[in-house]
Amino acid sequence: MSTPRNATIIPYLKTIWILQNEEMARVGVTILSERLSKATATVSQTVRTLADARLIHHEPYGPIELTLKGEQLALKVIRNDRVARAFLYRVLDYPWPDVAREANTLMLVLHDDLANRLHQVSGSPLTDPYGNPIPGTKGEPNARKGRPLGDQPRGVELEILRVSDTDQALLDRFDVLGLTPGQLVRIEHMDHTTGVIYGTCNNTALTIGVQAASRVLTARSDGKEHPKPTQSSSSTQTASVAARPSVSRPDRPSTRTSVTSE
């Protein structure tokens, strides 16, 4: 069977790869339906189409896994998407919360040569503006470890490595609070009754819900590590350290390094 139309398969391949490789999640129809905001019946039909095209492997009641062909296509899609984000943010100065949404359209028209040129013009960053690593980027970054903000100890200066980019409202909230990659944050108090975390971001007071905080990956700014907590409010993820500049300076060259989860 021929490969399905790109506009149909791109969101699926992208989401499956991220879930498998960056969130270490078991991929099924339910989680795809939630992430893509599509009806279960629609997702089930598309999954069958992808399986027929040999882009995924899926047995009844088993996990959805990319084939080699599917993984290669997914990586190209993700690279184009994250290169487009970096270009929009660093070169065109798009608002930080909006680049993920705008890049969804731009990446559809990118071919390899154009993506490489846009990446070069953007300063050849290792990550996109949300701290996600850009596949196929030359240079091996230094490994670091990170945890969700809510799993970190109190009173320690932390650097934001990566934030979730799947929820536009959450990105808007992070932007208002200053919770962007490269910024410094500290937890002062966690109210377990209300589920609210009180702290500072770049010496400015902030409050954030525990659930939202689980979407912000951080590491100690001094490079030291604390023992892994016995109970985690959220799972750790693979992420990348973003450059230290604030969002208002998108054109500053990247100094980002990748990190791996604990």
Results as ranks from 00 to 15, higher is better:
residue 219 A to G: 04
residue 80 N to W: 09
residue 48 R to A: 15
residue 88 L to Q: 13
residue 240 S to L: 10
residue 12 Y to H: 09
residue 196 V to A: 06
residue 166 T to A: 10
residue 89 Y to P: 04
residue 93 D to W: 12
residue 121 V to G: 02
residue 88 L to I: 13
residue 82 R to K: 15
residue 79 R to T: 02
residue 57 H to G: 06
residue 242 A to P: 08
residue 218 T to I: 13
residue 142 N to H: 14
residue 165 D to L: 00
residue 123 G to R: 11
residue 55 L to T: 03
residue 77 V to D: 02
residue 125 P to H: 04
residue 111 H to I: 06
residue 239 A to N: 07
residue 156 V to L: 11
residue 170 L to M: 13
residue 191 D to S: 05
residue 66 L to I: 12
residue 122 S to I: 12
residue 258 S to M: 08
residue 119 H to N: 05
residue 97 P to K: 06
residue 62 G to F: 04
residue 173 R to W: 00
residue 2 S to C: 00
residue 147 R to E: 15
residue 188 E to L: 13
residue 88 L to C: 12
residue 35 R to E: 04
residue 6 N to Q: 08
residue 190 M to E: 13
residue 33 S to P: 05
residue 110 L to E: 09
residue 187 I to G: 03
residue 136 G to Y: 09
residue 236 T to R: 12
residue 69 K to T: 12
residue 44 S to V: 01
residue 90 R to Y: 11
residue 208 I to F: 05
residue 32 L to D: 05
residue 65 E to D: 10
residue 56 I to V: 15
residue 136 G to K: 06
residue 50 L to A: 07
residue 16 I to K: 11
residue 210 V to G: 03
residue 232 S to W: 01
residue 168 Q to L: 10
residue 94 Y to S: 09
residue 52 D to I: 14
residue 41 A to N: 14
residue 166 T to G: 08
residue 111 H to F: 07
residue 170 L to K: 12
residue 137 T to G: 00
residue 234 S to M: 07
residue 214 S to N: 13
residue 17 W to N: 10
residue 172 D to F: 01
residue 9 I to K: 06
residue 130 Y to M: 03
residue 127 T to N: 08
residue 70 G to K: 12
residue 66 L to T: 13
residue 228 K to L: 09
residue 134 I to T: 05
residue 63 P to D: 02
residue 136 G to I: 05
residue 219 A to Y: 01
residue 222 D to Q: 06
residue 234 S to A: 15
residue 140 E to S: 15
residue 42 T to G: 00
residue 14 K to T: 14
residue 84 A to Q: 07
residue 7 A to R: 07
residue 262 E to F: 12
residue 260 T to L: 10
residue 253 P to V: 09
residue 158 L to H: 08
residue 126 L to K: 10
residue 66 L to Q: 08
residue 222 D to H: 07
residue 123 G to D: 06
residue 40 T to K: 14
residue 74 A to W: 08
residue 151 D to F: 04
residue 236 T to L: 04
residue 196 V to T: 15
residue 220 R to C: 12
residue 66 L to V: 11
residue 185 V to W: 01
residue 248 S to I: 03
residue 92 L to G: 01
residue 62 G to H: 07
residue 257 T to M: 02
residue 22 E to A: 02
residue 254 S to R: 00
residue 249 R to G: 00
residue 32 L to S: 04
residue 17 W to D: 14
residue 232 S to D: 08
residue 161 L to F: 08
residue 73 L to N: 02
residue 198 Y to T: 11
residue 15 T to F: 05
residue 182 G to K: 01
residue 49 T to G: 03
residue 96 W to D: 05
residue 147 R to D: 10
residue 30 T to M: 06
residue 13 L to R: 09
residue 135 P to I: 07
residue 193 T to M: 10
residue 238 T to I: 14
residue 162 R to N: 14
residue 152 Q to I: 01
residue 175 D to T: 13
residue 123 G to Q: 07
residue 81 D to A: 12
